[in-house]
C-alpha cells in the first residue's frame, strides 16, 4: 500500500534545541557568547585582537573555527589571548555540537566567549550556536554589495562591522549603497565602521560588546 504522510518537521529542530540549551547554560553562568561571522580575509582574527585588547576588564576567551590548522589560535595566544581551536575538517560552518564540546574546556571565571566562525557568509548564518549576539564582519575591500548578495547573514546580525576603513581611499566602497542594503536586511543591527589595524572605531564596538557582556 502506498500512502502520503504529513511530516511538518523543522530540519534543524534537534540542532537548534542543542543551541538553545547552550544559550540557557551560558545565561545561567552569566557568560555572554558572540558568534563572529564573516568571509575569509575580512579580518576576523585581527578584529578579535583589537577588540579583546579593549575588553581587559572582562575575562574573555576565543573559540577559533577553521577548516584546518590552528594558526589563528596560536596567533591569538601569542598576543596573550586565551583561545581554543575547532577544526571542521571540510565543514563550512560550526554547529552547536562542536561549540558545546569546546565550551566544556572553557575555564571558570571567563565572562565572554567569542566564537570565530568558519570564513563564509552563507552557511554560518543558518546555524544558531546558542550565542548571545552575532557580530557580522565584512570589509570595504570586498565591496558594498554584500547585503544584497547574502541577506540572511545581515538579517541575523546584532552588529554589522565594516572593517579596513583605512583602505577605503584605495577601493570603490559605496557607503550609501551598503547602508541601504544593511538596513533593508535589519533595522535593529548596530552598524560600525572600523579599522582593526589602526584601531579607528574599535572603542565604539567594544562599548557595544561590553553592554551585552555585562548584561549576560
Amino acid at each position: 500500500m502506498r500512502t502520503s504522510v504529513d511530516v511538518k518537521t523543522e530540519i534543524l529542530r534537534d540542532h537548534d534545541r542543542i543551541a538553545q540549551g547552550i544559550r540557557e547554560g551560558l545565561e545561567a553562568r552569566g557568560v555572554a557568547m558572540f558568534n563572529i561571522i564573516g568571509p575569509p580575509g575580512s579580518g576576523k582574527t585581527t578584529f578579535l585582537e583589537a577588540l579583546l585588547g579593549r575588553l581587559a576588564a572582562i575575562p574573555s576567551l576565543v573559540i577559533e573555527g577553521d577548516v584546518e590548522g590552528d594558526i589563528d589560535a596560536r596567533r591569538l595566544e601569542a598576543r596573550g589571548i586565551a583561545a581554543l581551536q575547532i577544526n571542521t575538517h571540510g565543514g563550512c560552518h560550526l554547529d552547536a555540537l562542536m561549540v558545546r564540546g569546546a565550551l566544556e574546556k572553557v575555564p571558570p571565571g571567563v565572562r565572554a566567549v567569542f566564537v570565530e566562525n568558519v570564513g563564509n557568509l552563507i552557511c554560518p548564518a543558518e546555524w544558531f550556536l546558542g550565542e548571545t549576539a552575532r557580530i557580522l564582519l565584512v570589509s570595504v575591500a570586498e565591496g558594498s554589495d554584500k547585503p544584497y548578495k547574502y541577506p540572511l547573514a545581515f538579517q541575523t546580525a546584532g552588529a554589522i562591522v565594516v572593517n579596513k576603513t583605512d583602505l577605503a581611499p584605495h577601493v570603490d566602497f559605496d557607503r550609501d549603497f551598503f547602508l541601504k542594503g544593511a538596513t533593508g536586511c535589519s533595522r535593529d543591527a548596530a552598524v560600525f565602521f572600523v579599522s582593526a589595524r589602526t584601531g579607528e572605531g574599535m572603542e565604539e564596538v567594544a562599548g557595544w560588546v561590553r553592554a551585552r557582556a555585562v548584561r549576560a
Binding site: 504522510v5 518537521t9 530540519i11 543558518e126 544584497y148 542594503g181
Partner: peptide, 28 residues
Amino acid sequence: FSCPTCGGDALPTGIGREFYVESMEIEK
C-alpha cells in the same frame, strides 16, 4: 531593498527562511 510601489525601505518578514520536511510518500 526598495518597495516597487512607493520606493520605501524593505523590512524582512520571515518568509523565505523556511526549511522543513513537509511530507513523504511511503509504502506499507
